[in-house]
């Protein structure tokens, strides 16, 4: 049984809407984890490629993975903080997860942080690769994690004083 009733999304819940493996291997691509019918549409309006399809304001968005160029513009826009971007082409063994972040202070480039999954469980370590700030205060933090964790990691926490990874 899934755990959506208690707020935990799983890869299984997303299986019909995730990009195919061939697309993932081509470069950065948006992952939209918004599967309920809520009246909302900023994502589809921001995508210049027309890659986010939303037939009506209350239909959940779908990404046209052939059109998505992985520009990342949709990540900080989503009011539900439900849009991520992944990039499996970063290195031999690491992939990137771009995630929206609204906490202070921001992590620094190069910092080692603790990677969390959709349930907030620690699943490994990550390195902060990029921090992009925007005037409306939702930042995008890009972290590198082991490739097999790219679809699991959706948040991170900074290490506390003296904490080891």
């Amino acid at each position: 049984m899934g755990r959506l009733h208690e707020g935990v999304i799983s890869v299984e819940d997303l299986k019909d809407i995730l990009p195919p493996k061939e697309r993932l291997e081509k470069g950065p691509v948006a992952i939209i984890e918004c599967i309920e019918s809520i009246p909302c549409d900023p994502c589809s309006l921001v995508c210049k490629q027309g890659a986010i399809i939303k037939p009506s304001i209350s239909t959940p968005p779908r990404v046209d993975y052939d059109k998505c160029i992985g520009c990342g513009a949709c990540v900080p826009i989503c009011p539900g903080l439900a849009i991520f971007m992944v990039d499996y082409t970063y290195s031999e063994d690491k992939g990137l997860v771009y995630l929206p972040y609204e906490f202070t202070p921001l992590p620094e480039k190069g910092e080692e942080v603790i990677a969390l999954n959709r349930e907030g469980k620690e699943v490994g370590m990550a390195e902060v690769v990029k921090v992009i700030t925007y005037p409306d205060k939702t930042s995008v933090v890009c972290i590198a994690v082991d490739k097999d964790l790219v679809m699991e990691v959706r948040f991170f926490r900074r290490k506390e004083n003296g904490e080891k990874g």
Partner: peptide, 23 residues
């Protein structure tokens, strides 16, 4: 209730930070 009443995206956002939701 047996399930969260609010939007899933709002719940997902607190869950991934490690805040438990006990239905």
């Amino acid at each position: 209730a047996p399930k969260i009443g609010g939007y899933l995206v709002h719940a997902a956002k607190v869950r991934r930070m490690g805040i438990p939701i006990l239905t």
